[in-house]
Simulated scan of single mutants.
Amino acid sequence: MSRPAAILNAPWDDQARQREAMRFGVWLFLAGEILFFGGLLLVYAVARYVDPEGSLAGARETDAAYGFANTIILLTSSCAMTIAERAAKQGLERVASAGLWIAFTLGAAFLAVKGFEYRQDLQENLFPSGRAFRLDQAGAARFWAFYWVATLVHMAHLIAGLGLIGRLIALGRLERGVGRRWMAVEVTSFYWHFVDAIWIILFPLLYLAGKGG
């Protein structure tokens, strides 16, 4: 089955050139994001080196059940996004629409689970600000500062991804399918997989460290 004719946006008058420009643009953006998250991971590495025991003491307080649940949710949503991308390229409108809806719904579920987790963290005084923080070690406070910054930044990226997927769903309803926007589905898929990959890196650092013994 041949790909649907893609919608061309100015200034492009050729599908191949437009696709290459869109792919280059999203990869350039993601390269910058990788540098940003790389800086966060460097901060984590330095904190672990300076006070490994304190960092592990802080890590032991995270709830791995929440982290594992959200890992499964994001992996499944990434699979659904891949199905949507492949279906859009083949003109399988119903499959593409279903994949987008599943990815969007699971992304929203991730936010819901994270909200419950944040509530639990706050109830247990695990926000490293002031005397209310219940762990004494300086390394534990640094770990939880990293936890909040990293997960909140990741959540912001996920919300942006939901906006992109929601836009595709809305356009699909208006245009009776996303087949002609398969290039947009493709680059959105790249971004969504990036969000997923960042979480896969964060999961063991935040939820598995310090729980081996």
Score class of each variant (00 low, 15 high):
Ala145Trp: 08
Glu124His: 07
Trp148Pro: 11
Leu158His: 13
Leu164Asn: 09
Leu164Ile: 13
Met155Gln: 10
Ala150Glu: 06
Leu122Phe: 09
Leu164Ser: 13
Gln137His: 13
Ala140His: 13
Leu152Asn: 10
Phe133Gly: 09
Gly163His: 07
Leu135Val: 10
Ala109His: 08
Met155Phe: 14
Gly161Pro: 13
Pro128Cys: 01
Ala150Gly: 06
Phe133Cys: 08
Gly166Asp: 11
Lys114Ala: 02
Val113Pro: 07
Ala112Asn: 04
Phe143Ala: 04
Gly166Ser: 08
His157Thr: 11
Phe110Thr: 07
Gly163Pro: 14
Phe143Ser: 06
Phe127Tyr: 10
Ala112Gly: 10
Gly163Glu: 11
His157Asn: 11
Tyr147Pro: 12
Glu124Ser: 02
Ala140Arg: 10
Asp121Phe: 05
Gly115Gln: 03
Leu135Cys: 12
Leu152Pro: 10
Gln137Met: 09
Gly115Lys: 01
Ala141Leu: 03
Asp136Asn: 09
Gly130Arg: 03
Ala160Ser: 15
Ser129Leu: 10
Ala132Asn: 12
Phe127Val: 02
Leu152Phe: 15
Ala156His: 07
Trp148Asp: 04
Leu158Asn: 12
Leu158Met: 13
Trp148Arg: 05
Ala156Val: 13
Ala160Phe: 15
Leu152Glu: 11
Gln137Ala: 15
Val149Met: 12
Ala132Thr: 09
Ala132Ile: 02
Phe110Gln: 07
Arg134Leu: 01
Leu158Gly: 11
Phe127Trp: 04
Asp121Lys: 03
Val149Thr: 14
Ala109Met: 14
Glu124Pro: 00
Ala140Trp: 11
Phe127Ala: 01
Asn125Ile: 00
Phe127Pro: 02
Ala140Asn: 12
Gln123Val: 00
Gln120Tyr: 00
Leu152Cys: 14
Leu162Glu: 09
Phe143Tyr: 14
Arg131Cys: 00
Ala141Trp: 06
Arg134Cys: 09
Val149Pro: 06
Arg167Val: 10
Thr151Met: 05
Arg142Ala: 15
Ala141Asp: 06
Gly163Ser: 12
Lys114Ser: 09
Ala156Lys: 03
Trp144Glu: 03
Asn125Val: 00
Thr151Ile: 04
Pro128Val: 00
Met155Lys: 01
Val149Lys: 03
Ala145Glu: 07
Ser129Asp: 03
Phe133Arg: 08
Ala150Ser: 15
Val153Cys: 12
Val149Asp: 07
His154Arg: 05
Gly166Phe: 08
Gly163Phe: 10
Gly130Met: 01
Leu152Ala: 15
Ala112Glu: 04
Leu135Thr: 13
Ile165Gln: 12
Ala145Gln: 11
Arg131Met: 02
Asn125Glu: 03
Phe143Arg: 05
Gly130Trp: 04
Ala160Tyr: 15
Phe143Ile: 02
Ala140Gly: 15
Trp144Thr: 05
Leu162Gln: 11
Lys114Asn: 05
Phe110His: 12
Ala112Asp: 04
Arg119Lys: 03
His154Trp: 11
His154Met: 02
Trp144Asp: 05
Lys114Gln: 12
Leu111Ala: 14
Arg142Cys: 01
Arg119Ala: 03
Arg119Met: 01
Gly161Glu: 09
Leu122His: 03
Gly161Asp: 08
Leu126Phe: 05
